[in-house]
Design a protein around this nucleic acid. Structure first.
Length: 922
RNA sequence: GCCGGGAUGGCGGAAUCGGUAGACGCAGCGGAUUCAAAAUCCGCCGCUGGUAACAGUGUGGGGGUUCGAGUCCCCCUCCCGGCACCA
């Protein structure tokens, strides 16, 4: 055995051996339970960044752990290869996006391989390849014919100078990123998926996902935003025509307080009013400026203008003025809202600004008063609990008078009763909504309706580098889907975009075609699909990436669902919701989950086992990802210098030297300014190149540090010193094994486990107890808690104890062998290369299996309890592990520490928490 | 603006079900080894007072529940993620 730990040597050898033996090939036919472990595939941006290293190491730890536990593991990898950055690179360097993308993929694949991930590379796929996206096009045509996909107008950001559609991130402070032109909203036709048709199932399905983080499920539920309300109309007559203005509200109980309506700038009423109102026309044009991003809409100043038109209140018959509001969106709901300034904060602000009337119709004070009366009655009978007293106090704050001067929280409360509302006076929220909905329905002017915040998914992109939408536009036949036999519609790869519109429009060879229905000359659709479409089904294609007879074969049934999905928290809503939606679409198309004909032996489905993570129930094809782990960002320090004109130059932390709290640039020795710790990014130049790390310390050190520095779900702060600490641990581990192996062969089997503990010295039993406690903890940390930093810390503690264990007798050497063997296997998921090398040195020939806990090693006769007096720690007592409560109490009271702090006072109460502490209350 | 998270020593973090706050690692300090340095090994290390024993104090800020709160409840501040065309 080598005395020195040489990472490059052992890592190269291990990787070569894994490749030669196809060690990580997932077997389609196996009698072992399957474990499908998937990390979100990367966008091939050029180089791997630390976020990737972290993501894929987490996945690899779980994959390797389950392999050691006897599962048939599949861990695939691929490329989310379509997208905007390739077009940006093309504009900057005049390279076709395809060329750039394929070069990046080759580079990043090599980097992933250097990190030693247990990936089945035979399943690799890239979404920009026709053999992948042809099935996306095929599914599109089926869904189009089924009506799941439809066409409608939608708003986009339009750059009038570059004559191109901009992504939201390309709009900076209302201007195009390259041209600097003021961005406008423009309506263009787009294809939409009817995701709203699945809204209910997407919402209720969250309940079948115990293996998902609660916060992700909450975010998705809020995003879907199911609300029950009333859709109703304000009738009006204009140009001698009777018509109706429809709105939706969740606060129908406040309908008697409507003092105006607001419509979107694009609403027909607004357009009609602007016809003979030039000022309004100008205002409407102004509303069309700016980006379509919701965050911008929500934070901008709320502006409006009177249309001069009015509609009739359906219940009171009053004339209600109609305003145009820049905050009302045509694409949301009806493009119009009723405004109740007294009970909606936004309406209140708007009314104040434009001097519109505010009419109170809800009195939350009344309900507060009733509750207070109830509390007073209770008080007369008994004392209030602390909780009740709190509540009473809170209620008291809600009894101030209504005033139209300042908004107060309780104005928006649903916990009130109607006032100033005629026949509805005195009704509470539910009763008022019911009564009002019934009256509107009787007038044929409204009904109760369930509405979702979720909108249909627009997938048309006016870009080149994406999956072509397989539609042909024919003058006579309309939009005709490309027949299956003519798929794929291949994207030409020799194109260099120039930033002004979609270059596909200029490609006659792509655009010109004949109608599949009538054969007449026709035009091919040049919009491509949202790249979220590709990432919505790739996980299923990994089961059968080589299948060219259809989207999936029977192997998809075997491997789905994904047992563990790992990716960034930034995907909590969009990607994960779209993938869940797609899964249901594909299920309903019978692509998996239905009856199928299989050839060859089947996989065993994942066995639900205690503590083995969550497994989906009987409907295992309803959801794509049984368990989800959302990892945090990788962040690092930033440093910059500011030029006279305020322009900042950012320096990479690797080029900065820190001494006595002063940061200087290594190259010139002059100081730089610390700019805080932020997400690693190109713009702040604070990225750490994983390659440099691998070159200097090896892949195992990079993996160990990223797993040790923080738990997966938190953000991870980069630290070069911390990396060295991780490397030092591996060197210590190597040395411990080296010194042990130098001692020569040991008896087989080791004389340790089972009975006879009494015959062994205490230091041996103590070490074995720690060893088996560590096995227990590490198993639980990896499998259930998915918290690897504490698992590593536990093994480090074990190694520290082992280093302190002295003696060269057979017993000591045996326990050392047992501990080292177990430690090496426990670390193997995290640092597989060194683990493999050390395992070979410790137990020649034997295959690695996860260590088993020896329960007998865990037994303890005596335990230590903390002793508190009035909740303050005052000492410890040692008691027999089996001591009864009374004996513990007596010992505690008799103890010196207790006597000292009791100062003769009699104990009022003694709290005994078994195995933990004793608290004496005086 | 709305939705979801987070805040613990000089630093990253631990404390899993309300029960010893600071495991493990980094940095720092002291020592061993060395001609010297690097590497390695050993010890100390929240803050305040004290030679010490010990005492007080301490988990972003304010209030509360409890024998006991980093953990639960209410209010506030700051930071981060998402907001439908970045992926």
């Amino acid at each position: 055995m080598q005395e020195k730990y040489l990472p490059s040597e052992i890592e190269g050898a291990a990787q070569a051996q894994w490749a030669a033996s196809q060690a990580y090939r997932a077997h389609d036919a196996s009698d072992r339970p399957k474990y499908y472990c998937l990390s979100m595939f990367p966008y091939p941006s050029g180089k791997l960044h630390m976020g990737h290293v972290r993501n894929y190491t987490i996945g690899d730890v779980l994959a390797r752990y389950h392999t050691l536990r006897g599962y048939n593991v599949m861990q695939p990898m691929g490329w989310d290869a379509f997208g905007l950055p390739a077009e940006n690179a093309a504009i900057a360097n005049s390279v076709p996006p395809a060329t750039w993308t394929y070069a990046n993929i080759d580079h990043m694949r090599a980097q992933l391989q250097a990190l030693g991930f247990a990936i089945d590379w035979s399943r690799e796929l890239a979404t920009c390849k026709p053999d992948y996206y042809r099935w996306e096009q095929w599914l599109f045509t089926r869904l189009f014919e089924k009506g799941v996909i439809y066409k409608k107008m939608a708003s986009v950001n339009w750059d009038p100078v570059d004559a191109t559609v901009l992504a939201n991130e390309q709009v900076i402070e209302g201007r195009g990123w390259r041209s600097g032109a003021l961005v406008e909203k423009r309506d263009i036709p787009m294809y939409f998926f009817r995701i709203t048709q699945y809204a209910d199932e997407l919402l209720s399905g969250l309940d079948s996902l115990p293996g998902w983080p609660e916060r992700v499920k909450t975010m998705q539920a809020n995003w879907i935003g199911k609300s029950v309300g009333v859709r109703f109309a304000f009738p009006y007559t204009i140009d001698g025509q009777d018509d109706q203005l429809w709105v939706f509200t969740t606060r129908a109980d406040t309908i008697m307080g409507v003092t105006f309506c607001a419509v979107a700038a694009e609403h027909p009423l607004a357009t009609r009013a602007a016809r003979d109102n030039p000022a309004l026309a100008t205002f409407i044009a102004e509303c069309k400026q700016g980006s379509v991003a919701e965050a911008d809409m929500a934070t901008m100043e709320k502006k409006g203008m009177d249309t001069g038109l009015s509609v009739t209140h359906p219940l009171t018959g009053e004339a209600i003025p109609v305003w145009v509001g820049n905050y009302v969106l045509m694409s949301y709901g009806e493009g119009a809202v009723m405004a109740v300034p007294a009970h909606d904060e936004r309406d209140f602000g708007f009314a104040k600004k434009y001097g519109l009337p505010i009419k109170q119709v809800i009195d939350a004070r009344e309900s507060a008063r009733q509750l207070q009366q109830a509390i007073a009655d209770t008080r007369a009978n008994r004392a209030l609990s602390a909780e009740e007293a709190d509540y009473a106090e809170e209620l008291a704050e809600h009894t101030t008078e209504f005033t139209d001067r300042v908004w107060q929280e309780w104005y928006g409360s649903k916990a009130g009763v109607c006032i100033n509302s005629g026949k509805y006076d005195g009704l509470d929220y539910t009763a008022a909504v019911d009564a009002i909905a019934a009256d509107l329905e009787a007038l044929n002017l409204g009904e109760k309706k369930t509405q979702f915040r979720l909108r249909d998914w627009g997938i048309s992109r006016q870009r080149y580098w994406g999956c072509p939408i397989p539609i042909v536009h024919c003058d006579t036949c309309g939009d005709v889907p490309v027949p299956a036999g003519q798929l794929p519609v291949v994207l030409p790869e020799d194109v260099v975009p120039d930033g002004s519109g979609n270059p596909l429009n200029k490609r006659a060879d792509f655009v010109n075609c004949s109608c599949p229905k009538c054969g007449a000359p026709a035009r091919r659709e040049t919009d491509t699909m949202d790249t979220f479409v590709e990432s919505s089904w790739y996980y299923a294609r990994y089961a059968c990436p080589d299948f060219d007879g259809g989207m999936f074969d029977a192997r998809a049934n075997d491997w789905l669902p994904v047992d563990q999905y790992i990716g960034g928290i930034e995907h909590a809503i969009l990607h994960l919701l779209y993938a869940r939606f797609f899964h249901k679409l594909m299920r309903d198309e019978g692509l998996f989950g239905a009856e199928y004909v299989r050839s060859g032996p089947a996989l065993s489905p994942t066995l639900p086992q205690a503590g083995r993570g969550q497994t989906l129930g009987p409907n295992r094809f309803d959801e794509p990802f049984a368990n989800l782990l959302t990892q945090g960002m990788v962040i690092a320090d930033t440093y910059y210098r500011e030029a006279a004109d305020g322009k900042k130059t950012w320096f990479n932390p690797a080029d900065v030297e820190l001494r006595d709290g002063v940061a200087t640039l290594k190259s010139d020795g002059q100081p730089v300014i610390a700019g805080g710790t932020e997400k690693m990014s190109k713009s702040k130049n604070n990225g750490v190149d994983p390659q440099a790390l691998i070159d200097q310390y090896g892949a195992d050190t990079a993996r160990l540090f990223t797993m040790f520095a923080a738990p997966p779900e938190q953000s991870l702060e980069w630290s070069d010193a911390g990396v060295e600490g991780a490397h030092r641990f591996l060197k210590r581990l190597w040395k411990l094994v080296y010194e042990h192996v130098q001692g020569g062969p040991l008896p087989n089997p080791l004389p340790l486990a089972g009975e006879g503990a009494n015959a062994r010295p205490k230091r041996i039993n103590d070490l074995r107890r720690q060893l088996h406690q560590t096995i227990q903890k590490v198993s639980d940390d990896i499998e259930r808690r998915k918290q690897f930093n504490t698992a590593i810390a536990a093994v480090m503690e074990l190694m520290n104890a082992l280093a302190r264990l002295e003696g060269d007798d057979a017993m000591t050497r045996s326990v050392r062998q047992e501990a080292l063997e177990a430690a090496v296997v426990m670390l193997a998921p995290i640092v597989p290369h060194i683990a493999e090398a050390l395992h070979a040195e410790l137990g020649p020939g034997a295959a690695m299996t996860w260590p088993v806990v020896d329960e007998s090693a865990l037994v303890q006769d005596e335990i230590e309890l903390m002793l508190q007096v009035n909740g303050k720690l005052r000492g410890q007592i040692r008691v027999a592990a089996t001591a009864p409560r009374e004996a513990i109490e007596a010992m505690a009271l008799a103890s010196e520490a207790a006597q000292k702090h009791l100062e003769g006072r009699p104990p009022k109460k003694v709290v005994v928490v078994p195995g933990r502490l004793v608290n004496i209350v005086v």
